[in-house]
């Protein structure tokens, strides 16, 4: 986790959420991947929830825009969440 001193809060990434935890998409750290995620409906402001984690620990499945999307942990680590 990265401490954002100016805001005084911790920035969370999608990869850090546990099963059943929700978050709101804030922004992305990988430009190219973000284009793919955007067109799949992962829009800033959208609520996402971790539905399942694969038994081997990776990939994960999230709910977004009313459907289930699976992505690797490394890909989830590029999705920054809004501080709650």
């Amino acid at each position: 986790m990265i401490l954002n001193k100016r805001m005084g809060t911790t920035i969370k990434y999608l990869s850090e959420l546990k099963k059943g935890q929700k978050g709101i998409i804030d922004s992305f750290t990988d430009y190219e991947l973000s284009l793919k995620l955007l067109e799949m409906g992962c829009i800033p402001g959208e609520i996402i929830e971790v539905i399942r984690i694969a038994p081997l620990g990776d990939p994960i499945a999230i709910s977004v825009a009313g459907y289930m999307l699976s992505l690797r942990k490394a890909e989830a680590a590029t999705v920054r969440l809004k501080p709650n």
């Binding site: 799949m40 459907y67 999307l69 699976s70 992505l71």
Partner: peptide, 11 residues
């Protein structure tokens, strides 16, 4: 081609 896993889990 970049290898992405991002994939729908359909109903």
């Amino acid at each position: 081609e970049k290898s992405y896993f991002v994939m729908e889990l359909p109903t």
